[in-house]
Design a protein around this nucleic acid. Sequence first.
DNA 1: CAAGGATTATGAGACATCTAATTTATTGAC
DNA 2: GTCAATAAATTAGATGTCTCATAATCCTTG
Lengths: 175, 175
Amino acid sequence: MSDGQGTDGEPVDPRLHEERLARLIRLAARAFNRSLTLRLSTEGVTFGQWIFLRILWREDGLSQRELSDRAHLTEPTTHTALSRLEQMGLITRRNVEGNRRRQHAFLTDEGWRLRDVLEPLAIEANDLAVEGLDAEEQAVLRHALTVMIHNLERDEAEAAARGQRVPPTRVQNAV
Amino acid sequence: MSDGQGTDGEPVDPRLHEERLARLIRLAARAFNRSLTLRLSTEGVTFGQWIFLRILWREDGLSQRELSDRAHLTEPTTHTALSRLEQMGLITRRNVEGNRRRQHAFLTDEGWRLRDVLEPLAIEANDLAVEGLDAEEQAVLRHALTVMIHNLERDEAEAAARGQRVPPTRVQNAV
DNA sequence: CAAGGATTATGAGACATCTAATTTATTGAC
DNA sequence: GTCAATAAATTAGATGTCTCATAATCCTTG
């Protein structure tokens, strides 16, 4: 079924082909996420927790709002995720500079310690993924992905300017 | 923060960098999904419904099990998705060849009709995404993604052989 | 051909995410 | 200085996905 032919043998638009870009990218993202999820699970950390920890390792003390922006998740989602991280003893939340509205998240010693354990796992997944790709190919890959993200986000911004909203995109693991 | 430096100015492993592959791929997949979700929503179709319709347009009459495999979703998920599609009048379910266990899904006329409306939207999103990339770059992109998917799925298969299971990978929209 | 094991679908319950509504705090305008 | 508008966090409720359990059917083999 990867011969670019429909069931009756007529040629198919390659952009609808099984190997179309959208599908390849979705599969690659899924495979990457699963690879990392599997490795993190050996340390009792979920993929969602990794996302927030990783942001905080770079910028400790962000507000919940800022974390939501960085993670591309809504505030309620961030709220519950942070509550869990706090309960696990990996972060604490508190106000700063007399602002009693914003809640800032700070890593605990244990949260910092996890970094040394988890980051090597991410590096391992990355190295594994690019096995067999030379530096040139990797550079083109990065460039192409960056261009695509830019194109698509510009389009979404234009749609937003016209008042069009994107509904929730589920089916995270789909083809 | 995209200068390859940590907060204290020390160099950072590029594989942990903001522009690391896993993040770019996740963002690209997300942008693609959102782009398509937005377009489909104008026709009252969700992303999840698109996934199953697209499979059926290629292979009408698959069983629920086969659809689950194709879509990389579990059977209960497929079950509820198909129930919704049936309720919308886009598919029907029935047994074939005297096998009363398997439920096969068949597109209705309306389900087939939608193809002419929706596929152009997918082509539009694809064309938009690759704007500014020449054929050579697109070929390298495809190749690189295919290699990565292969590498990562091989790794997962090896882990599975050791009895390691991948927990649910949530945070579909994450960084 | 009967019994046990495998396969397929379905049901029940858990969980992460979303949108919408509510609460609380801050900022800005008069 | 007070009040309205804005911003941030939280709560409530809906939904799609998952895992695990159960039911129904099919297949194999003694």
